[in-house]
């Protein structure tokens, strides 16, 4: 089990972004973490994977455990080696490298003998990538890039896979496809923590869901219950259909600002 307990995170020593978060991903499950822009979802993932310090963030309290062993003091490479992989928000594929090179980067920590098998496995799961293995990754479509990002994380054979908004900016049909692939990956034995704003998609495959608002978990229930909850329907499922476009605009604006700073 991957668990986060009472986590408090600050950026720049003063900006308190996570105010005591607890959540857990039992082995073999898909768990959804939902929340609006700026709730702190990505920060949770950074805290788990040792990526806080390059964002000038720091864990103030609490801990992250993997099978009861603390892992929050590990740096990013050691976290990967411990079996926690992640697909970062915005796909972040290496656009100038080929598809296969992107995948091989994902295998950096893996034993050399496993690389070929894992390449084959990824190409079987994502046949589009097999067709394009020598092409420059930047030319892939958005959906293909998302698949590449997921495939890259799988190259390290993670036991737990953290996905940060894999549906972001993709057409509904492609979102469906990504959703099915997540289920498939889960069935092959990888536990999944799925961060999403697309609550519909996430709750349709998760067994359990957490809803975050400004650094706190405000709801923590089985996915089936959340799907039927009036408030959730109104705020997350409903909002999606009407306000999706404007939502995304806000988000891009925000992200630019953050990159430049």
């Amino acid at each position: 089990m991957l668990a986060v307990e009472n986590l408090e995170v600050v950026y720049e020593d003063v900006i308190l972004v996570l105010k005591g978060i607890s959540l857990s991903v039992p082995e073999g499950s898909i768990v959804a973490l939902l929340g609006a822009n700026g709730a702190g979802k990505t920060t949770v993932l950074r805290a788990i994977t040792g990526l806080l310090d390059i964002h000038r963030g720091e864990i103030r309290k609490g801990k992250v455990t993997l099978d009861d062993k603390e892992i929050h003091h590990l740096d990013a490479p050691k976290t990967v080696a411990a079996g926690v992989g992640q697909v970062m928000e915005g796909r972040r594929i290496l656009t100038e490298l080929s598809v296969e090179e992107n995948l091989r980067v994902g295998a950096h920590t893996a034993a050399r003998g496993t690389v070929q098998d894992n390449l084959d496995r990824v190409f079987t799961t994502f046949p589009v990538l097999a067709d394009r293995r020598r092409s420059v990754a930047g030319y892939l479509s958005g959906g293909e890039q998302q698949m590449l990002a997921i495939g890259r994380a799988l190259m390290a054979e993670p036991r737990y896979l953290l996905l940060d908004e894999p549906s972001l900016g993709l057409a509904p049909l492609i979102v469906q496809q990504i959703r099915d692939l997540i289920v498939e990956i889960n069935e092959q034995g990888t536990s999944v923590l799925l961060v999403e704003q697309n609550a519909n998609m996430a709750l349709s495959i998760a067994s359990h869901g957490y809803i975050m608002e400004t650094g706190k978990i405000v709801m923590d229930k089985p996915a089936a219950v959340l799907r039927d909850d009036e408030d959730v329907r109104e705020f997350y499922l409903g909002l999606r259909e009407e306000g999706a476009a404007s939502f995304r605009d806000v988000k891009h604006y925000k992200r630019r600002k953050r990159w430049l700073s």
Binding site: T49, A76, P77, V80, Q86, M88, V105, G106, A156
Partner: peptide, 8 residues
């Protein structure tokens, strides 16, 4: 950051 996240 990507390199780090892949374990480099």
């Amino acid at each position: 950051e990507v390199a780090l996240a892949q374990g480099v």
